[in-house]
Design a binder for these strands. Sequence first.
DNA 1: CTGAAAGCGCTTACAG
DNA 2: CTGAAAGCGCTTACAG
Lengths: 328, 328
Amino acid sequence: MKPKISDVAKVAGVSPTTVSRVLNNRGYLSEKTKKLVYRAMEELDYVPNDLARSLYNQRSNLIGLIVPTTSNPFFGELAFHLENICDSKGFKVMICNSSNREDKEMKYWDMLSRNQVDGMIVVSYNRGVFNERKLSHPVVAIDHYLSEQIPVVGSDNYAGGKAATTLLLEKGCKEIIHLHGPTSLNTPANLRKKAYEDVMCKNGVRPITLEVNEILNKQNQQRVIEQLFNTYPNVEGIFASDDMLAASVIREARLRNIEIPNQLKVVGYDGTEALQTFLPQLTTVQQPIEQIAETAIMKLVEMIEEKDQSEVSYETRLPITIKMGETT
Amino acid sequence: MKPKISDVAKVAGVSPTTVSRVLNNRGYLSEKTKKLVYRAMEELDYVPNDLARSLYNQRSNLIGLIVPTTSNPFFGELAFHLENICDSKGFKVMICNSSNREDKEMKYWDMLSRNQVDGMIVVSYNRGVFNERKLSHPVVAIDHYLSEQIPVVGSDNYAGGKAATTLLLEKGCKEIIHLHGPTSLNTPANLRKKAYEDVMCKNGVRPITLEVNEILNKQNQQRVIEQLFNTYPNVEGIFASDDMLAASVIREARLRNIEIPNQLKVVGYDGTEALQTFLPQLTTVQQPIEQIAETAIMKLVEMIEEKDQSEVSYETRLPITIKMGETT
DNA sequence: CTGAAAGCGCTTACAG
DNA sequence: CTGAAAGCGCTTACAG
């Protein structure tokens, strides 16, 4: 059996109360008692039981994290930073990969509630699920509106879309097409499209946005990309709303012997570390992933700590940077 | 306050014992009582407290996962599969990114122990840390030996190294160099090198292995790669022990105007999804990541369930496949 | 078929 | 400076 506080107490010749106080460094303790207790803990290889502690304290120091999948470098990198920051603040992270499925998101949500998480960070494209659930604990969303009560943190999508489009125009592209994820979802990411369309119109060029309906669906992506090249054989610039789309565009262009950047210029969005090792030549709009993670946790902790949530701003947009590559 | 079992009991007009039994579907219950209890739970929005449950049951259904970082697509993808499989078996996952630092691994290990994990999956390049810790719960390692007591699951590294080297030879390369991670660590991954050297010797060619000392250190990698090209300007084939190295090799070759695959052929190792979207043209040895995850969890659960651990095989090597790209 | 009591391993207000 | 008692929210052996 694992030793418990009462075992330590017996060995140290004190009461469990005293051991607990030594453990938490609370109240007045004589040096002698402390040493006795430390020695006993050492001798028994005592490990405190955080479950029991959390139960009594009504505080788990646990953060639930729901992402589509850490297989995707963007979410993998986001999860890394979120966990790291949580750790530095004394929080533990329970991770959930929803594959962006509503049913899984719901199950994970309930599971996390049962596990008494102090708060949750959610990356979901399915607003509906969360909109209706009563919030028994604070939640912060990344780059997607989940409900009126759930603050959102993300990159400055409008600035990103604007920068990408402007760059393509400056490089002399006339026919510029935007490849975008599903817009039926009301998310801040739609501002990438909005910015693209605004800039295009302002420059007297017709904006053309093609939509990829399903996120995480490679075949669907591929179909849309092929259609793009078939319908617009003279396309000179493509602004893809994420780097994986951009990579697929580059691949298709190569198959069609379209030279990049001479005949076609491509700009992506995200700028993960993985991209920078695997496809460093891609010009892309880089999201400040670590800063997004920091801000999200900061908000969440504020909500957890102070029960007055009126002070937490609903939406935060963090500045992007353009990473110049060889595709523009 | 959140409702607890006794609140439900009051509303349903039964005892807490009965509510608990309904919750766990244990023992004889009259249909009428069940309905009463369900209705009460519904009415109160009752959510069971898994912390309390785990405390009593001496079983958390929690798995701790320590990886270097989910930013790296290989670990990100591995984490995804591990979590998914855990979830399907009713386990929750607490995730820890160690950045491959011994001090962090130790802290995380202790943290997970305090949280009463039923078991741990560890990916670590630092054998020492774990070798000395007494195992208070089952542990399974991925692709690295941590101690005599900790089973290892990974890809068949020898077969992978052999396949890669053989391919390069078949494609006509004479001077083939192997880029390898730190070999001071005694890990199964060293078999990639061993296989390379065996195949080279068997074919009467001199094996040359260059070592990257620090994992996750980009500058160090870059230095070694530049040195490779400077020292061996006529290199015809490079077998890199992971895809990120291979990608850096390709980048450097491009800077030096070395044509791939005409002048130089490159084979990587891992074959993650991210690679397949970002750099699909790379020929690589593909690890069966999902299968590795499955096997690891299977072993871990066996160890958790049956206390007789003699039946669990110490090492498992899962079959690799060569994914042909355009770099060979 | 159902309930009162004890206990999982902690912590804290209260008393001394 | 230290301890006995109660309680965090559950579950289960025991009794009825």
